[in-house]
Nucleic acid binder design. Structure first.
Lengths: 260, 260
DNA sequence: ACGTCAGTTCCAAAATTCGGAACCATGTCC
DNA sequence: GGACATGGTTCCGAATTTTGGAACTGACGT
């Protein structure tokens, strides 16, 4: 195992659930001996990837990670274009907008557009969630080939919230529905009482794919309002697909043909 | 040189001025041979610290850096308390607020509070600037011992903007002034036409230090308005010092005594 | 006084990295 | 079509690092 692999193993121990770790935590999480942990933690601290609270002695991500994190996709055309459009939809509807990317079978929130209806933001940027449990996560998965999806979902199907697909077959059924309708919907999944609608956008130029979703309180919205969100999203999707040269893959055409 | 050191050397090549790099760029910037660069770049990409544009083949910070970056000081009490107060001052005055930390002889912007007077934000979070060229940078330096300051400033004094101190002696004179008045001021330095006032806050509990500043257009503000900002900042400083147990160090008393 | 946490230091064995050279795949220019 | 540039990959022996168990340190807590 290379030093870099070990370093990454330590860095991956940090998450929004565990934003700082003690020496013992790191040892337990990585299973590495004391001396190795000591050396590595020191290197990471010295280079700025981690910092250490002088009082509690706990470690947390450092200034360098902050600086680099700010650089990530800072000049990404696809994202800024999508964000601009999403901002307008959120301003009109008052709901909260999300932009996310797919990583394995999880999605990571990249951008949030807070709505005027103050729905507490529980998914800040950087948040990682199983893609099958969110509307835009499923929208992104739906644009992959069936083999690719199968390869991404862990062999032991993960335990997902109540209203998310509970096994691979249910998941594929929902993805097929998204392929048919072009829009993905969720309600009462990761967060109780919260619903969302989303779609996936794939740049024709770079092949880069992002998920775009609008989120709202299920209780506080009417059926009509949700239909309005659907119209807004469909219009935004059409516009963005035109601007980015996103042609819905032949995969979808095949899937449609198969299910008809 | 360890693999980690090399990895960091590559990561440090990225900055807001150079948010993505080609293979050749990395080779030139690190001076490493082709094979080493290839191996390392691949490792960094595979572990998610970098990603590669499939079209242009250029490298940029990856998803993992984004996730970790979001975790950096996410639950930092000193910063959230300061941000809360700064938000109020910015709402009252309409100016833009900054929170930064010191790293060596540079400062890094951590948080921005946009003002209502839309002054284009040229210093986004993550931005690195010589501390001697900003108001809160100098405010933070002023709270260090003279030896510490001397150790941080490079032996060949850096080329700073017109109105910043042009040599070590001038710099120390400005820091001494900050030590006397407790407030730091800047005008037409890093950015032409922009002025700012700031101070440094140091937690009595953790020893952590941050710089807090308010920034405005010099042309668009009157002397009276700048005096108002001074009053606001002085009041905020007093309140935050009380809340965080920040006692202005004896160093300052000594400096005061020395200059009197 | 005793235990715990958080490290550090040492050392020889084991594993990784290093870098030059050769090779290769694309894309562009003439 | 051929030459050249960019952006890599692969190979291999030598050189350098990393590894992990064990012993030791130092600050707190009770």
């Amino acid at each position: 195992m290379s030093a870099l692999t070990n370093a990454i193993e330590i860095l991956r121990c940090f998450s929004s659930a565990r934003p700082d770790l003690s020496f013992a935590d790191v040892m337990a999480l990585t299973g590495k001996p004391k001396s190795s942990t000591s050396r590595l933690l020191r290197s990471l601290r010295d280079c700025g990837l981690l910092e250490q609270d002088p009082h509690t002695r706990r470690y947390r991500p450092g200034l360098l990670t902050f600086e680099l994190g700010r650089l990530h996709r800072a000049h990404d055309d696809l994202i800024s274009m999508a964000e601009r459009e999403l901002r307008e939809v959120c301003a009109r509807t008052g709901h909260t907008g999300y932009i996310a990317v797919l990583d394995g079978y999880e999605q990571v929130v990249l951008r949030i557009v807070p709505g005027s209806n103050p729905l507490r933001v529980v998914n800040p940027p950087g948040q990682r969630t199983p893609a099958l449990a969110t509307s835009n996560g499923r929208a992104m998965l739906a644009r992959l080939s069936d083999e690719d999806i199968r390869a991404r979902v862990p062999s032991t199907y993960p335990k997902l919230p109540r209203n998310s697909p509970q096994n691979f077959k249910q998941a594929m059924a929902r993805l097929d529905e998204i392929r048919r309708t072009g829009l993905s919907e969720a309600a009462d999944e990761s967060i109780e009482g919260v619903g969302s609608q989303g779609f996936a956008l794939k740049s024709g130029e770079t092949g880069e794919m992002i998920g775009i979703a609008v989120s709202y309180s299920v209780q506080a919205t009417t059926v009509a309002e949700r239909a309005n969100v659907r119209r807004e999203l469909t219009a935004m999707a059409a516009k963005l697909r035109r601007l980015t040269g996103d042609q819905l893959d032949p995969v979808i055409t095949r899937a449609q043909a198969g299910t008809r």
